[in-house]
């Protein structure tokens, strides 16, 4: 007779699989299947019927061609989103690391400041966001008119300062970058909430003995930052960059365009799927390149 009792290892394997079963079913039914279907949609012309069903006719790469070459706005929206991501990601990452360093130190009223900094996470939804943006615009508008008022009376000229920056040899591109970041400071601050949390958690997990050692060895705070803190949080930089890019694209105009194409008056499922696929492919390419670049520099304990 065969011994049919399972070993402990097999038993544990089965229990482990049972634990992840709900997720596994969901993944197969909703992600895997949907991904295949979206690919199929994007290669066909979809006719939606009144009953809610649809028929698909294979048309090859026509949808992609149309989206890239003929659609009036898609091209522009996609490149704009990609450009904005590339501009903002480095800034958001360093900004949130900087703020996390400040918030990690002990000082009076830290709880309050932390609560304020995480407020943007709560205020992220559609209508709330819209009215916040409106209010922001009002404030910014006020600031701009104030600046122009001052400029008229005191002869202060912002352009002059920009010229100074250019004169001392800072490259054109750099100045443009600085200006565009300053213009978007509201959005950058608002997009950094989660990243700050992740960095604070990372800083908390750095072992205090490392700091002790560097202090005894006579390292300056500057050296301590670059030799201890920065390498220790570097793996989390990857996490943050990935999170930032994904979050950015989820809220970008590309998604809105794809959504409107599918559920607007025309109901062009095929085109919408092609748009989704194109943006997904571009996100994944960006992610892969950036992660590959950073992970070479990142420091891992083990």
């Amino acid at each position: 007779m065969k011994n049919r009792r399972l070993t402990l290892r097999q038993k544990r394997a089965i229990t482990g699989l049972l634990f992840i079963t709900p997720w596994l079913i969901g993944f197969i039914v909703y992600y895997l299947r949907s991904f295949v279907l979206t690919t199929q949609f994007s290669l066909s012309y979809i006719k939606v019927m009144d009953t809610g069903g649809y028929t698909a006719t294979f048309v090859g790469l026509d949808n992609y061609k149309y989206a890239l070459l003929e659609h009036t706005t898609f091209n522009q929206v996609l490149t704009n989103s990609i450009r904005n991501v590339l501009i903002d990601v480095p800034f958001i990452t360093f900004f949130s690391l900087f703020i996390a360093l400040l918030l990690n130190a002990k000082f009076k009223g830290r709880g309050l400041v932390r609560a304020i900094f995480f407020l943007p996470i709560l205020l992220g939804s559609g209508a709330v966001k819209e009215s916040l943006e409106l209010a922001t615009e009002a404030i910014q508008g006020g600031a701009t008119t104030m600046i122009s008022d001052i400029a008229q009376t005191s002869g202060l000229n912002v352009d002059y300062f920009l010229d100074v920056l250019l004169d001392i040899g800072i490259p054109d591109r750099m100045v443009d970058y600085i200006i565009s970041i300053i213009g978007r400071i509201y959005e950058v601050v608002r997009a950094s909430g989660i990243q700050i949390i992740i960095f604070i958690a990372a800083l908390q997990s750095v072992s205090p003995s490392l700091y002790e050692v560097s202090k005894i060895e006579g390292a300056t705070p500057y050296e301590t930052f670059w030799k201890v803190t920065f390498p220790m949080v570097s793996p989390l930089i990857i996490t943050n960059v990935v999170y930032t890019i994904v979050d950015y694209f989820v809220n970008s105009d590309v998604v809105e365009l794809a959504y409107n194409t599918a559920f607007g008056s025309t109901m062009e499922y095929g085109l919408s799927s092609a748009m989704s696929m194109l943006s997904t492919v571009s996100i994944c390419t960006i992610l892969a390149v950036i992660v590959a670049l950073i992970s070479r520099k990142a420091f891992y304990y083990n």
Partner: peptide, 17 residues
């Protein structure tokens, strides 16, 4: 992958489903 993949990629099939 489910974290990284934007949810709009799967929106149409899920809607149909």
């Amino acid at each position: 992958l489910t974290i990284v993949l934007p949810s709009h990629t799967i929106m149409l099939p899920v809607y149909q489903h």
